[in-house]
Write a protein that binds this DNA or RNA. Structure first.
Lengths: 109, 109
DNA sequence: CAGTTTGGTAAGTATTGGCTTACAGTAAGT
DNA sequence: ACTTACTGTAAGCCAATACTTACCAAACTG
């Protein structure tokens, strides 16, 4: 259900960069934004989107907002990808059975 | 490198739908487009994008273009996702070592 | 308390990209 | 040969969205 959200959210390059910068551990916004080609508010907006998608979590520490990776947010996307490999076998089985019975079963149209 | 492309390509809902419709096996364009909320040319355009991304392959059969899933196209994206779980362990190790040495090592700023 | 750091939000802009209609081309059927 | 089925491409339109600047609020610092 939400793998669609994760896909959409991670499709953006700079948002993905924000996400990747959290690999090394939790960081405050200004640290994430440092050295990025976009403004700090832009990073803030991306973090909001990432958070809403469950890909990131936030805690306050004084005036700082510390953002951290939420790997569970990637789980559904991962499962979705895996499902393609699963039904590769399934499709093969069905196809095999179909071919065995007759040569008429048109998949077309 | 191309996981970025896959991410971007699969982010679109209708394009993802096109992709999913190929799960059941190879199909001609008109079969894929049948019952979709968008026009047939739209589907054609999506198929082109999917093909360029290596997520789909095409063969001609008379006047028909038969499109089929290319699961290998998902491999890099899968690996990228996996890498997050890998370095979860790595980060934990580093964090553990850091904490052991001192309590000063600020990750901030 | 004044000034600085940190960061979220608003408003407005501009680019990206997905959609449609129209057209062209190729193969199959009659 | 004429028609029909199938599909890709072009041109143009429109909506989504990523970015900017400006602003405001809250918490440290001196």
């Amino acid at each position: 259900m939400t793998y669609e959200v994760a896909l959409n959210v991670l499709a953006d390059p700079t948002r993905r960069e924000v996400f990747e910068r959290l690999r090394g551990g939790p960081r405050p916004v200004h640290a994430i934004a440092a050295g990025m080609p976009v403004s700090r508010p832009a990073v803030s907006q991306h973090l909001k989107v990432l958070k809403d998608a469950g890909l990131v979590e936030e805690r306050s520490e004084g005036v700082r907002r510390i953002y951290a990776l939420r790997r569970e947010g990637l789980a559904e996307l991962r499962d979705w990808l895996d499902s393609f490999w699963d039904d590769a076998l399934l499709a093969f089985k069905i196809e095999a059975e179909r071919t065995h019975r007759q040569t008429k079963g048109r998949i077309d149209e």
